[in-house]
Amino acid sequence: MAGNKRIMKELAEVRTNPPPGCTVTLADENDMGTWDAVMDGPPDSPYTGGHYKIQITLPKEYPFKPPQLSFKTKIYHPNVSNDDRGAMCLGMLRPDEWKPPNKIADVLRLVRSVLAAPQPDDAVEQGIADQFKNDRKSFDKVAKEWVGRYAK
C-alpha cells in the first residue's frame, strides 16, 4: 500500500526534524498506524511545563482519510473534550476538510497553536470556554492546577 511508504517517510521526517515541542514515537514498532506524540505545553500559556501525551491513529486509508487525535493526558482546555476520549475538534481533521497533502507534523503544529491560543467560539467544552472568555484568571488557575495534577 502506497500509504505505508508515506507513513514511513513522514515518521522519518518527524523524528529527524520534529515540530517544535513535540516528540513522536510509534506505540508499537510493528504497527505504523498508531503514533504516540508527547507535546510540551507552549511557553507563555498556562500549560507551560506540562507534557501531553497525544495518541494519533492513522486510518488504513491514510492519507486519504484524516488521522484521529486523542489527548491521553487530561487537559483543561475549551477545545479538548474532558473525558477519556480527549477528542479535539480541529477543522483540518474533519473528513470533508482533510486534504491528503496535509501531514501529521502540520496537525501537531496546529494542535500546539490551539493550545497556545484556545478558540472558545469553537469549543467542545462550553463551560470551560465561557470561563475562558469571562474569567480568564480563574481559567488560568485551574488550567495550571491541572498541569500540576495530570501533566507532570
Binding site: 502506497a2 486509508e61 486519504f64 470533508d96 486534504k99 491528503p100 497533502p101 496535509n102
Partner: peptide, 24 residues
C-alpha cells in the same frame, strides 16, 4: 498513482464533493 487512488476511492464511496484538487 495517488490521484487515481484518491479519486477512485472517493467515487466508490459516493463522495462527489471530495473530487476536487487535493491541495490544502
Amino acid at each position: 498513482q495517488c490521484l487515481q487512488d484518491f479519486y477512485n476511492n472517493a467515487i466508490t464511496e459516493g463522495d462527489v464533493a471530495g473530487v476536487t484538487c487535493l491541495d490544502p
